[in-house]
Nucleic acid binder design. Structure first.
Lengths: 192, 192
DNA sequence: TATATTTCTTGTCCTGGTTCAATGCGCAGC
DNA sequence: GCTGCGCATTGAACCAGGACAAGAAATATA
């Protein structure tokens, strides 16, 4: 159950067996069926979830009901609303499973306990967030600077697995275009 | 020279006098005139700069010369291309002073030394990056989901100082709209 | 196998925003 | 006190992508 996550963490920093035991002991295992909303906008996010199996997305909804998918997460990714998790403030996004999931979860308390006992991990988490930030920066750039078609092609290249697992209109909402227009882009690409 | 930055850091964690001395001792002070490019795309970013005085922006340029401003930074902000800084890889953005600046800078080496000597700061930096990430997430959402006018109004509310200090076309490139259209949005707002 | 529900496609019309070009404005340099 | 240049405004033509509607496929449910 813990092989994958331990591999993930030890890619960033070396841990002793004892430290790994502490880590694993603090994780809470949960199985969640698909189409479950793990976090509602307005609620406080009390988890950081590592996906051992399954697929999750988090997304925003504006006043008019318009949806924007912030992230798709599959095996070996973490999911949370960090701002809400860190500061116990109401979340401004939703988190929803798209497939049946096996998760390994930290709460704010267990995370603090973990960091207190294994301070090395502070660095791992920082690097994780940094990576996230860098990816998001370049995504913002592409969202603004490139056409729908280029965004779609870029997405396919970067995440070739995702389209096989999630519905197309979710991808549209990730790219920031309408589901209809994505369909048109696709047919145009197929004709070539 | 160090009051401001020390205040900034001690807002997040308590440091002893000795630790503060180590911290300050590792910072490199630099004055830079305006319109200086501190980092070119393709170069390796070897600094994290705290702005003691001045104004800086970082931005992307695509193949067609189209510019997107990622961030305006003024007093009490940090500027860097973290991905490039952390992994010594070529930057994919530019960093440029918009005003004469007084900077306090860390290099990858001094930062590592600092974190080794004052491990507490690992957490400060993590929280800093987390805050950045959260802001960027909601910006991406707004970029996709709201009209040019709403983005502009939101910007004014969030950063009322910036428009007094930077040219309007930079703000347009931050909002992801053309300079001409921002001008039209503004005149429309004034008529009300 | 039939039925319901969700997803995807396709067409038509519409609009927010772009592009290009012209004009005006402010201010730094000499 | 000119001159030149970067910046902001305005207008006209254009277009990428949205909204809506209707139908076709695909998938789940029974």
């Amino acid at each position: 159950m813990y092989e994958r996550i331990n591999q993930y963490v030890t890619k960033c920093t070396l841990l002793t067996e004892a430290e790994i035991d502490i880590f694993n002991g603090l994780l809470e295992y949960r199985e969640v069926p698909k189409k479950t909303i793990l976090l509602y906008e307005g609620a406080v996010c009390n988890f950081e979830a590592y996906i051992n199996k399954g697929c999750i997305r988090n997304y925003y909804i504006d006043e008019n009901g318009f949806e924007v998918t912030l992230q798709f997460a599959i095996e070996d990714w973490w999911v949370s609303d960090i701002a809400s998790f860190q500061h116990h403030t109401p979340a401004n996004m939703f988190i929803e499973t798209l497939e049946d999931c096996h998760l390994l979860m930290l709460s704010p308390q267990t995370k603090e306990e973990l960091l207190a006992k294994v301070p090395k991990l502070e660095r791992v988490f920082r690097l994780m967030v940094q990576r996230n930030l860098a990816v998001l920066q370049s995504r913002l750039f592409k969202t603004i600077a490139t056409s729908a078609q280029d965004k779609y092609l870029d997405f396919l290249e970067r995440y070739p697995i995702i389209p096989q697992r999630v519905a197309q209109h979710y991808i549209a909402s990730y790219l920031g275009i309408s589901a209809e227009f994505l369909s048109k882009v696709r047919t145009k690409l197929l004709k070539k």
